[in-house]
Every structure is written in C-alpha cells, then in structure tokens.
Design a protein around this nucleic acid. Structure first.
Lengths: 156, 156
DNA sequence: ATAGATTATGGGTAGATGTGGTTAATTATC
DNA sequence: GATAATTAACCACATCTACCCATAATCTAT
C-alpha cells in the first residue's frame, strides 16, 4: 500500500498503449496522487509542443480563471483562447483508470499505438515517442548553453 | 549507541549489487541518517554525469519547487523540465532497505550487476564502476588545473 | 571469542495494474 | 419514433509489483 508517496506531483515516464477505441491508461502512480476533489477526472488539452497536456481537474480551474481575465478586445487574446479551448475537454477515467482521448487531439499529437506518458510536475504530457525524440534531439543541439544555465540555478 | 551521529549527509563508498528485479540496497549508514520526514523514501533521478542521483525526499522538494516556478510558455523551460523530470521518481525502500531502480535510469547509467554507491554529501550517486573510472581518468587529464583552484578555495 | 543483532541478497506470493473485449446506455440519424 | 452509431460501463485475464519470509554474511557488545 503506497498511499501517500508523492504529493500531487507527476514525475517519471511510462510507455503505454492507445487502444482501438482511443482509450489510454493513466499510470496508477499518477491517479493515486490526486485528491477526491478531482472527481476521477482530468482535463486534456493541446500542448505547446506537439503533444497533449493532461491536467488534474482542480489545476485546470486555475488556468481557466486566467483565461477569463484576458480581455476579448484584443484579437491576439481571442485567437489564443479559441485555439486552446477548442481542443479542451474534461474526461473521467473508467474503472480501469483509462481516459478517452478526443480525435482532434490524437490528430494534433499524431498519436499511434505506442504513447509515451511523461510526468511534468504539475501536468502530464502524452507523446508520440518518435516526435519527442526528433524534437529533443534538434532542440538540444541549439540550446544546450541555456540548459546548463538553468541546471546551475536549480539543481543541487 | 550511535543513532544521531551524522546529520543527513552521505559520505563513503559501497559496492552493492543490483538484483534480477532491479532492486538495489541502500547502505544502512545512509538510511539511518535520515529524518522521519523522508518517509522511508528517496528520489532517484538522472545525474549530470552518466550516473544516477539519489536525493532524500525532503531535499528533492526544494528542487521541485524551483521547477514549478518555470513558466511553460518558454520552450527552453519545457524542454529542461522534461529532460530531468522524466527520469525522476519517488521510491520507498522495502523492509530490507532496497529501492527499485526504474529501467530508464538503469539504461541511462548503464548499470549492470555491480553498482558503486558513493556518498556525495547531500545526495548519493550510483555508478557503473567501469564508467566512473573511465570518466575520472579522462577528466583529470584535462582539468587538473581547475582542481587545484577549487582546492585553494575550499580546503582547510 | 562468542552470542546476538544487524545487514545484504535471493526468492515466493497475493494483490494491484495494464490491456483487450463484451454488453448496456446514450446519442444521433432518418 | 425506430434504428443505427457512438459512447460509457462492465467483465476477464495476463503481467507486474509491493510485500513477506528465509538465509548468509557482517558487525557489536560483553
């Protein structure tokens, strides 16, 4: 019984599979970390990278509050809100712990059968493994100096 | 009775073995040093050298807090968080004092059966002995001058 | 030195977990 | 409103993991 291990944060990576019905299991370690207030639900949305972002329900509320503050007078704001929210939905996981991924997100992240699930502290990312390795390889070549700088600030 | 000798620091090296289930014993001297707040848990993550870093749970919280502050709007931040946290997990040790090492870390540090466990003051390093001696040999040849400089700053 | 305690290592097992498939319920379409 | 199509709830099973016990080696204290 490992009930109170992590405290509401997601870490680690898992290689799970998207089944023929578009269902994906969320790692038990991730589900077990969440409070009752999340009502067995996540919010899935478009990531800023070519992946899917998965938030605990209560964490998403805060983001939504921020979105509400953005003035609709600005066209940039309107476009930004529209582009994220149209991909956003609340999904409850079934008795086995799986969520149903919407088709537009599957298309956006180009998910096939094998899905890489990555804990990103306060959210979860869903990746096509191929897309991630391509992106990271290319990116790290360019930005390794900024990486080192961040590491020096943060890692002990 | 030497119960409260050291205060949460790790020194010395040990040669232990990774068993067929991916479990590794943490030296009793290291475990006995930790406060109750660590809940019999460590956080294992990717080291900056080709080894595994093991933090006491409470020490890792501070790093995680810093990671939480990084805005996801920056691509460098996202990539940095991902590159560290995907290798990170909280592991509780069993009644015999062993922790389970995740496969991605075993791969990263190229751990085989023999593992060198090194106390690094505020954290613990897990090495493939071969990789460590190679790395140190190569490094000393190049950087011995910087070693001397550090020695002048620090040594008593 | 010797007995007792602690520690490192190996293995077994019950319960938890991941995955596929089937049935019931809901929604959509004509 | 009847029927098809889609979604959600349920069941089954293989795999894996956390937890337990056993044993040998090492350390500690008298």
């Amino acid at each position: 019984m490992t009930k109170t291990l992590n405290q509401n944060t997601f870490t680690g990576e898992f290689s799970y599979s998207l089944d023929s019905k578009g269902r994906l299991n969320i790692p038990a370690k991730f589900r077990n970390v969440l409070s009752k207030k999340n009502k067995d639900s996540f919010v899935i949305t478009k990531g800023m990278d070519p992946c899917i972002w998965v938030y605990p329900l209560v964490a998403w509320q805060n983001i939504e509050d921020e979105l509400k503050k953005l003035s609709s007078l600005s066209r940039v704001n309107r476009s930004f809100v529209r582009s994220t929210v149209r991909y956003t939905s609340t999904v409850k996981y079934d008795k086995q712990g799986r969520i149903a991924i919407t088709q537009n997100l599957i298309d956006y992240a180009k998910l096939k059968k094998d899905v890489l699930i990555i804990g990103m502290v306060n959210k979860i990312e869903l990746w096509n493994p191929k897309l991630l390795s391509d992106a990271e390889k290319e990116f790290h070549e360019i930005k390794s100096s900024e990486f080192d700088e961040l590491a020096n600030q943060i890692i002990l």
